[in-house]
Design a protein around this nucleic acid. Structure first.
Lengths: 167, 167
DNA sequence: GTTGAAAAGTGGCAGAG
DNA sequence: CTCTGCCACTTTTCAAC
């Protein structure tokens, strides 16, 4: 990876926090809040994008509004000679899989799945289980969210340095 | 919930897709791509924000760049009389918990946790297990991502209607 | 950090569906 | 009546200095 030391200072972290809260905040507004001019903020943002500290800007959408009303996590168990590379291919073939990762523990991988409803989820699960090297799966259907993560991927609690700012 | 039928048409879905891909895309650019003027796009975005189809704009940040190099999912088992409301409070007290939800299966809840490193994660886990009504936890430490979810929260595979557009 | 030109955002208004 | 494009006017971006 091209991850330079990057050395973010406090101003950088405040800029990131502002942009995570609202990716469309103007540089001028961010600058006013932290005592910097708009171009200065832009230069820092450009630098952080270059350093891949900031990997992109996205929009949070209510999944249910788009018709995805069922969410689940699925543990996947593969047979002994399961190549992780092969798993990555499979994962890309099912559009309902929104995240996939290898994990410690008994399971080989953990999938995050979004489906229209339970019927659709069952169909997805059957499709995944039909893969030759998959031995078994264990599903955890999400009932309700206790913490509405702002944007699960980008969201990080705070900065390791300062544990003070809890939301 | 105030979820109106909302009835998104094809243009709305294309606008959402464009904004999910890049929340800072100009309305003019989106309009040019779908055959609409900039103000027309803005009107639709405003309407979708009002209807809470679009819940916000955020920035994707490399967690490791901010010092969060350890990621894990933790199953939480509570004692019989565990009130979910109480769990929600606890979850908010630990800034390292980036997502929490109740799930089907043996466990009562599933937590997504980000920590600086394994040592930090262990400390967080001990803190959580110290809660009086938590019986046990099972941790799945994330080793590597097979699918780099654009932004896990907002990301949805495609529209249930058209299963054709797979990335 | 400041300046200035180009681009984007935003609200009013009239017309088409 | 809703949605659109057009037109001013304001704000923001961005590449100079």
């Amino acid at each position: 990876m091209t991850s330079h030391p990057a050395a973010l200072d406090d101003l950088d972290r405040k800029i990131v926090a502002a942009l995570v809260a609202n990716a469309r905040t103007s540089f001028a507004e961010i600058g006013a809040a932290i005592g910097l001019s708009a171009p200065a903020v832009k230069r820092r943002v450009d630098r952080m994008r270059e350093a891949e500290v900031i990997t992109g800007f996205t929009t949070m959408v209510s999944p249910s509004a788009l018709g995805w009303r069922t969410e689940a996590y699925v543990e996947v168990y593969c047979d002994s000679a399961a190549p992780p590379r092969r798993l990555a291919e499979v994962v890309r073939d099912h559009p309902e899989i929104t995240a996939a990762m290898t994990v410690t523990g008994g399971a080989d991988a953990l999938l995050h799945i979004r489906a229209e409803d339970i019927q659709h989820f069952e169909e997805v699960l059957e499709r995944i289980r039909a893969e030759p090297f998959i031995d078994k799966t264990i599903s955890y259907i999400v009932l309700s969210h206790l913490l509405s993560d702002s944007a699960e991927a980008g969201a990080s609690p705070a900065t390791p340095a300062d544990e003070t700012n809890r939301r």
